[in-house]
Design a protein around this nucleic acid. Sequence first.
DNA 1: CGCAATAGTATCTTTTTTGATACTACTACT
DNA 2: AGTAGTAGTATCAAAAAAGATACTATTGCG
Lengths: 131, 131
Amino acid sequence: MTDNKFRKREVMMRCVPMNTLQAVLSGKWKFLILWYIAVSKVQRFGELLRRIDGITQSTLTKQLRELEDDGFIHREIYKEVPPKVEYTLTGLGKSFVPILTQMMMWSQTHLCSPDYVSPYTEEQIKELLRQ
Amino acid sequence: MTDNKFRKREVMMRCVPMNTLQAVLSGKWKFLILWYIAVSKVQRFGELLRRIDGITQSTLTKQLRELEDDGFIHREIYKEVPPKVEYTLTGLGKSFVPILTQMMMWSQTHLCSPDYVSPYTEEQIKELLRQ
DNA sequence: CGCAATAGTATCTTTTTTGATACTACTACT
DNA sequence: AGTAGTAGTATCAAAAAAGATACTATTGCG
């Protein structure tokens, strides 16, 4: 699976940037999943399922497949028992992290209550903005 | 309608930033609508309908109402015949424009074909990043 | 009078997305 | 032999989102 395979190829060809982005990352979970993978770098399926509040197993599976098909994440299967699968960001995925980080920060200051305390350290943020 | 009225208040109270943002701006059209309003600053209903490819009138109405309820846009009704309604960004909406702009630019370089030519001038981009 | 123009609303239907539930495979451990 | 643990799949159901269609109001114009 390379960074150049997209589910919605037609959209990409005559690309209108916002339309394409919207087509690829719309839905209820995509940003959240990318964010959780970005923050902890490597994620196993079960851990994502536990962390992302409210998502079901089948939905998570589908969303991860789509993100993989669209080139945002890589799925590494370890031939172990019990099974182990790790999800990591691809180059494309990593390049999107600074935007996710800014979205998180924007939401923090504009949507969350004023006394909200960020769970992320400044160093963490800096790193997320860099990658 | 102020910047502090949200459709999904419960989400905001115990705010987990990415969750809240996702809850408020998910769906197939929100980013696109905000983007079109941001780029041309003031928009009439019919113009948005013509510009946003594939959206239907009833869907556009619904999405605009939600964006209004969530404090991103302002709806100005002119008591004229035929009717005239203009949509503009609120303070909250404007504060989100730099992120939209970066999303657009990211999509341009990472999703669109390499020979894609941006329809936006550098000055326009600069201004969009500032506001 | 009949029509155009604009921004809708009100219903109903379809499509898409998400969820619930049950099931599988493999191995180690008790 | 039965159970736990992981990452699923398969099927069906429900909910949410989006779309189609018909309708409204107002006024100026021919």
